[in-house]
Computed example of a mutant assay.
Amino acid sequence: MKFYNLETEFNHLQNWSNKAATGGALMTIVTGRRRVGKTALLNQAFPRGGEHRALYLFVSRKQERLLCEEFVEQIRALLNVPIFGNPSSLREVLEILLQYSCTEPLTLILDEFQDIQRSRLFFRTPASLGSVQRQKPDAPDLLWFTLQPDDAFVPEQ
């Protein structure tokens, strides 16, 4: 896959991941129009089995309980995290990941995150995400960049 006009964003992602690996923490939001390569950029920056541990979770429009089961299965398999019981809320799943990230650097990619809000799965109150973030007080930074339509990727042939 070949990227055009995304070298800066790719380098930012790598640098932020390096910062996380040395004890820093950042929350990064990648936004942009449909089909401009957001997911492809993240997959390129954080390949499975790559230098940086990354967990890619796709937020599908499912019931919260089913989505949690899917996420917990991936967490157990990819991060080798023992999870006791069956978390039934996304808040519980995110708390598990925040606890894990206190001892191991982790890049968490939530693809189609807006579907959490649309399905009213997680944002039952406006303070939901903030209450989860406060559990990791050393993560104050929010970095945001938007991919534009003229930024693109072209699959290599």
Rank of each mutant, 00 (worst) to 15 (best):
Q63A: 14
R61Y: 04
E156G: 09
Y100V: 03
Y4R: 09
Q117P: 00
F122M: 06
F113R: 04
R120W: 06
G24C: 06
V81D: 04
L97N: 05
S17A: 15
T107Q: 08
L78T: 06
A21M: 10
I29F: 10
R65F: 12
S131K: 12
F71H: 02
E9R: 07
R76Q: 09
Q44T: 13
E92K: 02
M27A: 10
D151K: 03
P155V: 08
A40Y: 00
L143E: 11
N18L: 14
E95K: 01
E112Q: 08
L67C: 07
G32L: 06
A127P: 00
T146C: 15
R124E: 12
Q44Y: 14
L129M: 15
H52S: 09
E104N: 14
G32H: 03
A40D: 03
Q74C: 04
A25L: 05
E70K: 02
Q117Y: 11
K19F: 09
I109H: 01
G23M: 07
C102S: 13
D111N: 09
A139S: 15
G37A: 08
R35Q: 13
V154Q: 14
Q157N: 15
G24N: 11
N15K: 12
P87H: 01
G32S: 08
S131M: 13
D115W: 04
E92R: 01
F122L: 12
L41S: 05
D151Q: 15
P87K: 00
Q157G: 14
E64L: 02
L142K: 13
F46W: 09
A25Y: 03
I116S: 01
P126W: 06
N11Q: 15
S101V: 02
E70Q: 15
R120A: 11
R120D: 11
F71A: 02
I109E: 00
G130I: 05
T28I: 15
T8E: 15
S60W: 08
P82D: 06
Q63R: 14
E51R: 13
L6P: 00
C102M: 14
L147A: 01
T103H: 12
L90I: 05
L143D: 10
P140I: 13
R65M: 03
Y100Q: 06
T146I: 04
D150S: 11
L98Q: 07
A40K: 03
T39W: 04
A20H: 06
Q148I: 07
Q148V: 05
L142Q: 12
K62N: 06
N5V: 03
W16K: 00
L147C: 11
M1D: 11
